[in-house]
Design a protein around this nucleic acid. Structure first.
Ligand code: MN
Ligand code: MN
Ligand code: ZN
Ligand code: ZN
Lengths: 132, 132
DNA sequence: TTTGTAGTTTATAATGGTTCTAAATAACTG
DNA sequence: CAGTTATTTAGAACCATTATAAACTACAAA
């Protein structure tokens, strides 16, 4: 399996559950956005055994810590995650609550002119809200 | 009171509680960011009577709907609101969880080149995460 | 292998921010 | 004032997330 080494290299034991979640998250053509509930459903659809909800939470948080997932800053009743961990921005469709990636070529350079003493910029994220 | 008319003009009855919350939120030199819990504390500090938590939630949501408050898209266990309802962006200090306004002059123009069919841009918000 | 240990999974309970409920109260209108 | 509608309120309910603690598993040392 290609994920066993990735997990071991990250200091995460390659358990059956983690490998299966890797396959749901990363063995895809395109990156995608998801909530924990949506991921749980995807897992149910793809695998036969059951993975407990606690493990799904644990794994998502572990992967986020390792930089394999990103949280998307958005106000919703559920937390959104992104398998696209490159720097990029989002459309957020207020009507249906869906997120759409903006490619870097879709957004001109963001110029932050102000500096905060002793702080470094870690990320710059643009959220473009859409309505009808 | 200056808030009575503002409330009536918005179709909101100028109740004692709403006027008092207006004073906490809007009778200030500078705009500020807050969570419901922080607002509750501010209210306790400023007024003698008690305002129930349900009323604080109701009022904040009513004010948001009328455009007197904005929600700030950020991932936290509590929702952040902003008394600055102009279009502006934020620094978010990951260390202490504090938000800082970026003035419009602090950020160059944001150029969104992609369009989504049948959708209009409602807002463009930049979140700049800071670390040490 | 065997065995010890730390890491992981799991069912379930607890937490806590937010929303709901329904009864009491207050604001408005005629 | 009387009738109506809006608002407030305490408390319950909701529900995403986190904590708990016991069973299980990966791993490495013996
Ligand atoms: Mn959230
Ligand atoms: Mn939030
Ligand atoms: Zn994305
Ligand atoms: Zn602000």
């Amino acid at each position: 399996m290609k994920y066993i080494e990735k997990l071991r290299n990250s200091g995460l034991r390659p358990t059956k559950q983690r490998i299966q979640i890797c396959e749901v998250l990363f063995n895809t053509e395109k990156t995608f956005h998801f909530t924990i509930n949506e991921l749980e459903q995807k897992i149910k659809d793809k695998i036969d055994n059951k993975i407990s909800l606690a493990t799904v939470y644990n794994t998502v948080h572990a992967f986020e810590k390792k930089g394999y997932l990103k949280q998307i800053p958005i106000n919703s009743n559920q937390t959104y995650f992104d398998t696209n961990v490159t720097d990029h921005h989002h459309f957020y469709d207020l009507k249906d609550g869906k997120l759409i990636d903006l490619e870097n070529s879709d957004v001109g350079p963001i110029d932050i002119k102000r500096k905060i003493n002793g702080k470094k910029i870690k990320s710059i994220e643009v959220l473009v809200k859409l309505e009808d």
